[in-house]
Design a protein around this nucleic acid. Structure first.
Lengths: 287, 287
DNA sequence: ATGCGTTTGTGAACGTGTGCACAAAGATGG
DNA sequence: CCATCTTTGTGCACACGTTCACAAACGCAT
């Protein structure tokens, strides 16, 4: 029945439930929360151009969303607009920043300084909006000495000390998939309660810990799906069987299983999907 | 009424509608499509361990989802399971691969070879599952000569030629935000119909073009929101006013606007959110 | 003051997604 | 061939998210 770890819930990004409970507590829907940063970015741009007020229609266009949706989103934060005029840009910037918790300082650790970790350390979006890279960590002794984005790469052994002493509550994982769960466990154990996971692995965490994942491969696969649809390329296969009624399917399934490990029938001819081994280790960090 | 560009729809990742139309055409819900790569990864791992069959319960645990959800997802693809036994791993790998369009070759161009573009070029997840980096492009002459991941970085001018001659239909944008829309337009013009955007900008594209975005800053902000909630740190502010009835709010709003550009009242004291200028240019690629 | 044009805030309808719970279907052992 | 056990496939109810449409609210000009 229970597979893998028993009690901890393996919540991931698109999972309602855990995250929902948190935000619905005082009413802001998760979908709205996910859009607030988008609005904030558009508002910041307006603020820099010294635009005093903006209508929901304009702001919605800038953020690429429906204007009614935007108004409803803002209504969850309170009523910060003026009918007939629009929204006060500066005030809204402040309100959203406050709601997102950006008026405080968020120290962040990045674990796994490969290509991606290195890129993230240099990423401007980290420095802005109250996020501060507290430390870069890696297990590889060859990397530990070096610096990235002006910061020294420190050894994994210092993880617990850093998290505790610097009050780090957000961790970013850019390790190879094999190491991700271990790193995650150590982060959580040390006190981190929010994790941004770039490794292509499902992380299992205790309740109360949020995990969001960013998976480049998944994004590409979703695009490929739609791309295939656009090309009118209905996947052929044995689609006649797929919806066949009753015992027909059963017989087919039995045959498939009987064919054994030798990738029988259709799959054998052209299936680059199941490519080389170690799909798990070659990703995210080559080294 | 119409703001910015008129006809092209600025579809983005979390937008139903455009993407929905495509996938609902023959019935697979978007939410299901987004989970298929997850199942595929878990199945590939099982396949490498030569596990012949797997139950929905086991696979669901490995993918971090509800087992009923998984079964329903698979039911959209057809009935590939056997009651009392489970699913044939190899066969399911093939079916999902086929449905996602991974049985064919997908040449991809990466535009903007800064830190992130460099990291993506080396990313193992690209090479796998039928995706192939067709070319790396950049506008900076200093970068154009170099190589990344064994591939030469070519100049933007070659974009159109490459897309056309290599039949590239998927483009990845890792440029600074300021250049993203221009690059996007050129990609689309050349024939690209799917774009993965890492630049923190809302891209506007014509109908029929899919855009998915990955924004690290947004992910962090969402985590910060939940983190703040966990800390029981109800944002204080003038929450009394927020839900005040009638004319009270109006007067307050009037005051805010009258205060002018000088970030009055609350915002002034501590608002690191509206930090240094050029939030738009320092992100994604420092160079 | 009054009326007019504009824009917010939200009620209501609809579509999508999720999860429970269970009947039907198949495997397996006697 | 029958009984039993396992697991799929799905009907159903509910929660969530989106969009329309419109009344109420506000500024402004007269």
């Amino acid at each position: 029945m229970a597979i893998g770890r028993p009690s901890p819930s393996s919540s991931q990004t698109p999972d309602p439930g855990a995250a929902r409970r948190t935000s619905r507590a005082r009413g802001i829907p998760e979908a709205t929360v996910a859009r607030l940063p988008l609005y904030l970015r558009a508002l910041t741009a307006l603020s820099e151009r010294s635009v005093p007020t903006v209508s929901s229609e304009e702001l919605a266009a800038a953020a690429g969303v429906n204007s009614a949706k935007l108004r409803k989103d803002f209504s969850y934060l309170g009523s910060y607009g003026t009918r007939g005029v629009g929204y006060d840009v500066e005030y809204l910037v402040y309100q959203i920043s406050r709601e997102l918790g950006l008026t405080q300082d968020w120290p962040v650790v990045i674990v796994g300084i490969g290509n991606l970790g290195h890129a993230l350390a240099n990423y401007g979006g980290f420095a802005s909006r109250g996020f501060r890279v507290a430390a870069l960590l890696d297990a590889d002794p060859n990397v530990v000495g070096s610096t990235a984005a002006g910061l020294p790469v420190r050894h994994m052994d210092e993880l617990e000390d850093i998290v505790v002493s610097q009050h780090v509550s957000i961790g970013v994982i850019t390790t190879p998939p094999g190491a991700a769960q271990l790193v995650c466990d150590r982060l959580v154990e040390a006190g981190v309660t929010s994790i941004l996971n770039f490794a292509p692995t499902v992380l299992t965490v205790p309740d109360g810990v949020d995990v969001r994942k960013v998976d480049l491969s998944i994004e590409l696969q979703i695009l490929a799906f739609h791309e295939q649809r656009k090309a009118g390329d209905e996947p052929a296969g044995d689609s006649v069987l797929d919806r066949a009624p009753g015992p027909v399917r059963a017989a087919a399934a039995k045959l498939r299983r009987a064919a054994g490990g030798g990738k029988s029938a259709e799959p054998a001819k052209n299936a680059p999907a199941a490519q080389g081994p170690e799909d798990d280790l070659s990703a995210v960090m080559p080294a």
